[in-house]
Amino acid sequence: MTAETVNRVIRVGTRRSLLAKTQSGQVADQIAARLGVQVELVEVVTEGDVNQTSTLASLGGTGVFVSALRDALIRGDVDVAVHSLKDLPTTPFDGIALAAVPPREDPRDVLVARDGLTLGELPPGSVVATGSPRRVAQLHALGLGLTIVGLRGNIDTRLGRVASGDVDGVILARAGLARIDRLDVVTESIDPLQMLPAPGQGALAIECRSADADLVADLAAALDDAPTRAAVTAERELLRTLEAGCAAPVGALAEVAEGEHGPEIWLRAVAAAVDGTVELRRSASGPVTDAAEIGRTLATSMLDEGAAALIEEPGKQQA
């Protein structure tokens, strides 16, 4: 660590939502503790925060929560940006480095439903809300006869729709509820065999200017978690090769475990028609050092089986 890094105040950019400020605050605390520097949180408004009524797909899908933070980085308004990694476009952004990916939270989706019910206990016709075509597709594929409606807003707004009786349940990411200490509302953590999460779900991305080489190196050494980085690398390479954005009906989950010849990665993926009529689920595994290649190879094989036709027009779905 250089003297310049130690003596500077690190400005951490964050969106204004409770979840964003909570997870950015946790990262800021870790930076302060591990690098021995002063840290300041700087709030940045994104288009996705301002527009709470339109679907994410109609706002542009991938990157809707990311671009304003990246612009703040490039302008020099902040030194570090913290994102939910699932929101991060898979295409590299000139001038910005993904400095660290901290240890991942539980990546599963969860149900918050009336009367403590699980998905299997909800009667046919029950109204379940979600803002994700990926979740819509997999819910329909389960064949439970649920009525699926759209969902936007912050966590409290989403939970309020269940409390008010407007809907029977909502699907959310478990990680977000865990970070704001609201897991008590969860009625079911959904098995990935039923619903694969979004690529990168549960993980955070810490970005800074690539020209700020000392800070990039310091953040990587202090905060990067190698197994998490390998897992999300496989998931995001699959997404990139499929040419699908974060609003596409694509799910993926990679897990790292010790194999016979060292650490191995197991990647599962799904591409599905949003109406649930067609679902393509495949998996692949290999050495953790080949994470990107595993994701690329699995995506290529899924494209050969027709995955592109399932995900080519997610923007038309009102999820």
Score class of each variant (00 low, 15 high):
73 L>H: 05
119 L>P: 03
28 A>H: 01
130 T>N: 10
189 S>V: 15
184 D>K: 09
238 L>V: 02
297 T>I: 13
306 G>A: 06
213 A>L: 08
303 L>K: 06
272 A>E: 04
207 E>T: 08
121 E>C: 09
279 E>K: 12
182 R>V: 05
262 G>P: 04
255 E>P: 14
118 T>H: 10
279 E>R: 14
142 L>E: 09
126 S>T: 03
8 R>P: 04
79 D>P: 04
241 T>E: 12
222 A>R: 03
45 V>P: 05
76 G>R: 07
311 I>F: 05
85 L>V: 12
253 L>F: 08
173 A>T: 11
54 S>M: 09
293 E>S: 15
91 T>C: 10
76 G>F: 04
16 R>M: 11
309 A>G: 14
140 H>I: 06
271 A>H: 01
314 P>A: 03
189 S>H: 13
293 E>P: 12
144 L>Y: 04
61 G>D: 01
229 R>D: 00
67 S>L: 13
88 L>V: 13
13 G>L: 00
105 E>G: 10
253 L>H: 08
42 V>W: 01
271 A>R: 00
95 G>S: 09
298 L>M: 08
266 W>S: 14
268 R>E: 07
256 V>P: 09
111 L>W: 00
194 Q>M: 15
203 A>V: 00
67 S>N: 13
212 D>V: 00
263 P>C: 09
242 L>I: 02
14 T>S: 13
236 R>E: 11
132 S>A: 10
71 D>S: 14
20 A>I: 04
224 D>P: 05
250 V>H: 04
204 L>E: 08
61 G>L: 01
313 E>M: 14
231 A>K: 07
193 L>M: 15
313 E>C: 14
158 R>M: 10
258 E>W: 14
201 Q>F: 07
96 I>A: 02
17 S>Y: 01
175 A>C: 10
199 P>V: 02
275 D>V: 07
70 R>A: 09
290 D>L: 07
124 P>S: 09
298 L>C: 07
107 P>S: 08
181 D>L: 12
158 R>N: 11
105 E>T: 12
276 G>I: 04
186 V>F: 11
194 Q>E: 15
167 V>F: 10
112 V>F: 02
282 R>L: 13
105 E>W: 13
23 Q>H: 15
267 L>R: 03
17 S>C: 05
24 S>N: 08
236 R>Y: 12
194 Q>T: 15
190 I>E: 04
148 I>G: 02
10 I>S: 01
142 L>W: 05
135 R>W: 03
192 P>E: 06
140 H>G: 05
197 P>C: 06
56 L>P: 02
159 L>Y: 09
124 P>W: 01
210 S>Y: 03
275 D>H: 07
125 G>K: 07
46 T>E: 06
212 D>A: 01
235 E>I: 04
16 R>N: 12
205 A>N: 05
176 G>F: 01
41 L>S: 08
58 S>A: 10
267 L>D: 00
198 A>N: 11
119 L>K: 06
69 L>Q: 05
90 T>W: 08
318 Q>A: 14
300 T>F: 07
84 S>D: 15
234 A>R: 01
108 R>I: 08
56 L>K: 10
151 L>F: 02
273 A>Q: 11
317 Q>G: 13
